[in-house]
Design a protein around this nucleic acid. Structure first.
Lengths: 342, 342
DNA sequence: TTGAAAGCGCTAACAG
DNA sequence: CTGTTAGCGCTTTCAA
């Protein structure tokens, strides 16, 4: 079997007996064309199975490629999947397609992906930055008219449109919810590295809630992990303290799996929990899991909308779009602390 | 602020005082070049921040675009996110990038996306087909050397490499597990439309297990839904039958949410459940959820590997790659049926 | 070791 | 209403 060449504009033109430009006109509904020519061109297009080469078109038009380059840390994380879905919804009506890659939270891979995307002349670049990545090199590209949007986390060395969850306020609300329920010793299980933006913000919200209630901030109640197993260990460690927490705030969906697994394993149904980020079966757990829900689809849509405005010529100053989180009380956050023995 | 033009090969050449071809040679390590020239070129490239235009390159070379076009029904579904991650892992080392879009299980949108991808001259096309979509029109493209791979579901009207889960055998194993536990009336909660490939296969596995055990196939124990709420209703309906099932097989992750929600709501801890497709917190539910786990990452990797072989010149006949599922007993599938009153 | 010319598939600009 | 010419940014081909 021999690879057959794909038909070009010229092939269609030859078939019909007109010039390439005429075919182009018909196809792009650019300029006038006689109904008769039109008909014959379309016929030939169908007959030959011609499909215009978008690369060639973009190139000649001089505009960027009709793609949105998106770099996320992990394609497998449903959070980023939902974000991607939101972006696609926002832009696909404008003829833009998603070009995606995973950085695996590695600045090198992120940089490589960005380079590839730039080389492809994407219309828009969206990045959920890896920890430690630098983005100063994108300045010139943004100046050249390519919108850059940071997602979930701000970038480094570049001030541009950024879409993030209300991490701090959301966590603060979650912790306040626990405090309102009578808890005074509340643990925080955060992800690593500790300098990750979302981790820092959520922990700041945790501290703010404690401060707001006049509660002391016990550094010993803050634990770290970078996977569910680690989160489970961290949970066990906190609960084994001499004066253990009566409630926990889980810093993200991955931590939550570990926290809940450990509570389930040890049969501790008396520990109140609020988890940051919603999870599918939260309502079925026992007790049902109270969460601070994020809105990843909205985040994606906002990012898409912002990018489209920039493409439309908006040169205003960079905006930070805060997408609201929402406290969803389901039970686990409403557990009262055990009666105090004093 | 005025949009500054991006530097081209010619700009670099002018800067250095050589021809464009020389710059091209240095950059692509094609043909010889003097160390001195080389140095000056690289210097100018760095100075101007030149990045070769990949579109122009692909076009001139005549080869396809360095992308893998992937169409999935729903970007937000973690299953497809994981599949995409697997594909990316497999191909990114070969210089390929993922171009993704959601069809929303709508054949029209799927077709539009495929058209866009073809127009972009993707190197590979991967599709998780929408119900009712036709793919005969891809024949010529495959003949022209573009690998086409179907994912999760076979395509229509085109025989080509296909990667699917062992839906039938997996479900059969799950149902056999329930039967081995003593269940004789087992309900099946499947997704709609009923002619969806995965639904049909899984239901066939269900029937095969019943037949294998000499159990009657009661059509009344099979229910449908297309979202969690519907699955919850379907579950309630089955359990309200005069002679209700003592065990349920949930046909996919979305159904599972509804099934478990209803069991939780009604406090029915006596109904055995096996769910097709694993879910994050399955182990924490009470009882812990027994599942037939799929392997989406492996599916993506297999698809990627198959595509790469085709790109490498493999013209062998189309293969169907069955990715094994795995029964993960966790408790809910091991519940015995209630003692029979006769 | 380097350069000049041609051309990938398409469209902008101008004629006719 | 239609055609011609030129050129997007790059690489191939051939010549120097």
């Amino acid at each position: 079997m021999t690879a057959t060449r794909r038909p070009t504009l010229a092939d269609v033109a030859r078939e019909v007996g007109v010039s390439a430009k005429t075919v182009s006109r018909v196809l792009n509904e650019d300029g006038p064309s006689s109904p008769e020519t039109r008909r014959r061109v379309l016929e030939a297009v169908a007959k030959l199975g011609f499909q215009p080469n978008l690369m060639a078109r973009s190139m000649r038009v001089g505009g960027p490629d009709t793609t949105v380059g998106l770099v996320v840390p992990d394609l497998g994380n449903p959070f980023f999947g939902a974000v991607a879905g939101g972006i696609e919804d926002a832009v696909h009506g404008h003829g833009l397609t998603l070009l995606m890659g995973s950085s695996d939270d590695d600045p090198e891979r992120e940089h490589a992906l960005i380079r590839t995307f730039l080389a492809r002349r994407v219309s828009v670049l969206m990045v959920a930055p890896a920890v430690g990545a630098d983005h100063a090199h994108l300045k010139s590209h943004r100046a050249a008219g390519m919108p850059v949007v940071f997602l979930d986390r701000p970038g480094n060395g570049l001030t541009t449109d950024t879409v993030v969850s209300s991490n701090r306020a959301g966590t603060q609300e979650g912790v306040a919810h626990l405090i309102a329920g009578g808890h005074r010793r509340i643990g925080f299980i955060g992800d690593l590295p500790a300098r990750l933006y979302t981790r820092r913000e959520r922990q700041a919200g945790y501290r703010a809630a404690l401060a707001g209630a006049g509660l002391p901030h016990d550094r010993g109640l803050v634990a770290d992990a970078h996977d569910p197993a680690g989160a489970a260990e961290a949970t066990a460690r906190l609960l084994a303290l001499p004066d253990p927490p009566t409630a926990l705030l889980s810093g993200n969906n991955v931590m939550t799996i570990g926290v809940m697994t450990e509570l389930s394993r040890s049969g501790r149904k008396d520990v109140a929990v609020v988890a940051f980020d919603d999870v599918p079966m939260a309502g079925i757990l026992e007790p049902a899991l109270t969460v601070v829900a994020q809105n990843p689809v909205t985040m994606g849509e906002s990012a898409g909308a912002a990018a489209l405005e920039r493409l439309g010529g908006d040169r205003g100053r960079a905006r930070t779009i805060l997408v609201d989180t929402r406290l969803v009380p389901r039970g686990s956050g409403e557990l009262p602390p055990p009666a105090r023995t004093r």
